[in-house]
Design a protein around this nucleic acid. Structure first.
Lengths: 165, 165
DNA sequence: AACCGTTAGTTACATTTGCAACTAGTGTAG
DNA sequence: CTACACTAGTTGCAAATGTAACTAACGGTT
């Protein structure tokens, strides 16, 4: 009699699950650290970080660099504008294209938040040796590329198999 | 004249950011793979996975094992009940405590989804050697423990420094 | 037995998010 | 110069999520 395969999955060992838990734990920890203190959400922080480094980008370019979708960027930009943390003008050549940069206020917040972020990152990596960090870094990169390449999970393709019966 | 430190942060190299991108990419890829096909959300899938392996848990225990909060579990359970994918009774000893297990229908879905999940995980890890996988595994664990331990990001504590004026 | 602090799970409400439709501006073809 | 297809960014609506308040059931304590 054919033996049943163990089709149950140990969630605690399932990579996507573990990644999700780690990512959420880390993100919410950092978010908590600056959320109320600076009245700043994660998307806003990302936009701020990007603009801190690359001033003058358009919303779309920010979206590209921050791996955010354009709606998220649009909303973050709206709030940052309301808070007077960024300035926006529009390109003469193409009046749809926005040109974004930090305002003085924005730079001030940016300057305060960045160290907190860095600090948390360092604290997190504290337990790892230099080589471990490098490995982890490279592995993350590999997985990231792989994940992009895979896109929507392609299942085992039953079709090729069930043709038998 | 004191040199300004570069306080801008390269998002693409920032660990929390990279983790978040990886996790989101992976999760949404898998979710997409079973979402419409099985009418199953991520929280529901988690509950299903847990109950597939540990039948008879209470909602709270599921929450513990799946690192979900109890509200999320409650909602997932409601839907799974509506779909007839799990059965629920209540403990005689303590009539608040629920006892959950997969129904036949639930087991059927579980049996179909699990391979998809496994498949995606394997596909993701394809590019990594056995040692790399082991390393990544261990590093993930370390970071996870560390992240839990850190909790809310404690900032550099200006106080100890700015005493200088 | 009536009271109180606690726990399991649910519900209500306020945000956040994600998707699709929409507006406005551009450029190219006729 | 009009029409059409396309891009940048916004908005509206519905579903997902988080927080806090709530209900019901317990487990003692008096």
């Amino acid at each position: 009699m054919a033996r049943e395969p163990d089709n149950s999955l140990k969630l605690e060992e399932f990579l996507p699950y573990r990644l999700s838990v780690l990512s959420n734990t880390v993100s919410s920890a950092i978010a908590a650290a600056y959320a109320e203190r600076f009245e700043l959400s994660v998307p806003e922080w990302r936009v701020l970080a990007i603009l801190g480094r690359y001033p003058g980008l358009s919303a779309g370019e920010v979206a590209g660099r921050a791996a955010m979708d354009k709606v998220a960027v649009s909303r973050a930009v709206t709030r940052l504008l309301e808070a007077g943390r960024i300035n926006r003008r529009f390109a003469n050549a193409d009046r749809r294209r926005s040109i974004l940069e930090l305002s003085a206020k924005g730079r001030a917040v940016h300057a305060k938040v960045t160290p907190v972020a860095r600090y948390y990152e360092r604290a997190l990596l504290e337990g790892l040796s230099a080589t471990e960090r490098k490995h982890f870094d490279q592995l993350l990169d590999k997985l990231l590329r792989r994940a992009y390449a895979l896109g929507p999970a392609t299942p085992p393709s039953r079709k090729t198999i069930r043709s038998v019966s």
